[in-house]
């Protein structure tokens, strides 16, 4: 397996959506190829960094406008 093929299978590999034979072939390649290993590890870290990041607090003015709009419209919807 060549490095280019590793990249084309990367999304399914990281999502654990590959069949076991292909997965094993990739892991054999990763054992030998440091560059691919770093790409796989740092791509995995990229997903984790974004996935685990906390959303910033809602700006106070945004929150106020949201709840004013909800207070105004929700009661009308229910009426």
């Amino acid at each position: 397996m060549k490095c280019k093929q590793i990249i084309s299978e990367l999304a399914d590999y990281l999502d654990e959506a590959l069949d076991p034979i292909l997965r094993n072939t990739i892991e054999v390649h990763l054992e030998k190829c440091k560059d691919c290993r770093i790409v796989v590890d740092t791509t995995k870290q990229t997903i984790e960094i974004f996935c685990n990041s906390e959303p910033a607090p809602l700006p106070a003015s945004t929150r106020l406008r949201l709840h004013e709009a909800l207070a105004k419209h929700l009661r009308r919807v229910r009426a």
Binding site: I7, I49, A56, P57
Partner: peptide
């Protein structure tokens, strides 16, 4: 060609490098 050209380890995790609010801004 999607083959990454820059290949290097990252060292300390972003959670160790940045405050949560700063990190949120960078990622956004």
């Amino acid at each position: 060609d999607m083959m990454p050209r820059e290949v290097e380890d990252w060292g300390p995790s972003p959670e160790q490098r940045y405050e949560q609010t700063e990190l949120s801004g960078i990622l956004s």
